[in-house]
Design a protein around this nucleic acid. Sequence first.
DNA 1: ATGCGCCAAGTTTTT
DNA 2: CTTGGCGCAT
Length: 772
Amino acid sequence: MRDMDDSFAHALETLTSAQREAVEHIEGPLLILAGPGSGKTRVVTHRVANLLHHGVAPREILALTFTNKAADEMRSRLERLAPQQPVWIGTFHRFCARLLRRYARYVGLSENYTIYDTADSSKALRMALEELSLNLAHFTPDQLAQAISWAKNELITSEQYQPRPGNPLGAVVAKVYPAYQRRLLASNAVDFDDLLMHVATMLRENPELRSSLDAQYRFILVDEYQDTNLAQYAIVRALSVDFPNLAVTGDPDQSIYGWRGANLKNILEFEKDFPEVKVVRLEQNYRSTKTILRAADALIAHNKHRKKKALFTDNDEGRPVRLTVYPTHRDEAEGIVSTIAAAIHAGRRRPSDFAVFYRTNALSRTLEEAFREHAVPYQIVNGVEFYQRKEIKDVIAYLQLINNPQNDVAFMRIINLPSRGIGKTTLARLSDYAGQKRMSRLEAARQCKDISTIKPSEAKSVREFVSLYDDLASRAIRPVEEILGHVLTKSGYHDVLKNSDVPEDQERLANIEELVTAAREFDERFPEQDSPLEAFLEQASLVNDIDAMESSSDVVTLLTLHAGKGLEFPVVFVTAIEQGLLPHELNREDEFKLEEERRLLFVGMTRAEEELHLSMASYRTFRGQRHPTIASPFLMELPRDEMDVEEIRSSRFADPSWDDAPSHDDSYFDEPAMQVGELNEEREARSSPTHLLSTAAELLPDASPSTTGDAEKISPDVFRLGMTVIHPTYGLGKITAISGTGAKRTATVNFCLNPGETKFRLAYSPLRPAQK
DNA sequence: ATGCGCCAAGTTTTT
DNA sequence: CTTGGCGCAT
């Protein structure tokens, strides 16, 4: 105990006075206005430690974040400061899921409810539309879903929803929303928005429950408060009435979730909500160099709807911000990865020092390829989401139905999967019957021989499915790996894939093996669950990246600008800073949305500690088509005179289509080049064709020799179970196990010279198939 | 009833 | 370039 006192006292000494003021605040509301890099997470974690130090029970502290990444970060930092304390740290959605698990009956659910992801919700919506037999000529289900989501975030329940007169979409929503909500309830399921809305309404309608939870969570911390929507705001408010020990941190300049209902008013009017509030401003930046900060500040200063705030730092001046204009997106990826690889090989940096940012997930592809080619280890945060893949969703649907037999979406997904000869007509009849009798479709399936419209031959297949289900469900409270194993074998799903000659089915099998591994790890990590399955499913629906379960490793991080909030890296690359991507096409028109895009770039730039590299490509292949790009207007807002601006003219990437490019088509080719010229402050370039990136010839590869050095890389996908392989050090071996895909594809190899098992991440290993 | 193959469409960000 | 929906052929 004494040790802890000493070390904690020491920790406090390292804080500045402003930081300490926030850390030492105990009771009463607290607003921390924290600029980027002002040590906010440090303040928050120290404050939690300080509360614990003052005898607050860990279970009375609740820390809420927006992303899993941010929660992980906070958890691991707190762990270092105050080890082994059961403080609840997690996302809003996760917190609500837990709460709802306990108080499901308050909102008409049972505790084993299912969380529908966006795809499941969309299926449920379609089911609701079918039930209504509504003809929606004018609106797509997507538009309806969006409108419903908006209403939920505004805490408008299906009963309360009143369209504005003369709003045609609203009129349809008024019909669909209640039907959709009934469908969810009948399936004992919720969508993402429900998690928040149910909890908010539950707290509003049950004063006793509200006050007991208020008392239970006496100290609440909310990170990134500028991103709360009305539902989140209502939840936090409801839990801070009798014990208004609510501490929020935020920065209006980093508000980037307006599109999902975040309301800046929540932070701007915090002082009105809690007149007694103590306000602490953390304005000094401890993260970035002066140069980086000046650039970021120059950018954000262009936002008109903003309180002015000067960022300052005592850090070094640092190296100039770099802006590189590459000929193509592939050159961009190549350039970035070579820069990273060179720094690592020179021993100046390690992979985890780097982060590469992009606006949309689709942009990660090219980068990924380059990382693999250079064998630089990387991880993608929220990439092509693992849990969204078809085969994973299929298997998860089995698990969901085992856990919640009312889950109609899961039922419809798997009843004929693998194919059992149960067709559309039979299912339509079954669904009708279930609708009339107000029962789940699984229940209807049990009674299918009583359904007059279903032929006995069909009924037989359905009954077989029901007995398969009952067999699987009998193991519902076993460890997840065991359940999963039975699902895969008994359903026939595994064998169908295994015996398939469709090449990608083997990859699917590998993905499923990865899911089994995740299940095993889950079982090991949380051995004492009442229902391991339920906990696993919750995790699976609220975390879309399987890596979140793994410990962090020494790899380069690739992520969207949104995912980057709250993180920092010594070296940051922000890519594809082009009109249409950043700012995104859809947000270019609206002044407020445009400002949010600017904040997004601001967030990206301020992640950097020592080096900031910005880049764009003059030509980008998008949706299979090569297009000339236009530099982002944001680039013109940066202090280019103090930056290193470089335009690379020669492409390393040959592309036959270049030859077809009409070099005389001025309107298309001049535009990007002109923008580039402006960037270089070479205004005279406008009239000088030699400065234009206009001709195909200029862009053709002059660097073909550059590829000679690289040994040809082998795609991880060519490796198969049982394959004989060769390794430069270990020699010949045989693959005894293989799982995953892409960068994560991992093989276990048994070498002749080195018996036993050696594991490889294939993308990074020098392993090759042996010659036939 | 199933399954394949074609065509069209649609592309943001997170839980 | 992907995904999803639909229609046709088996």
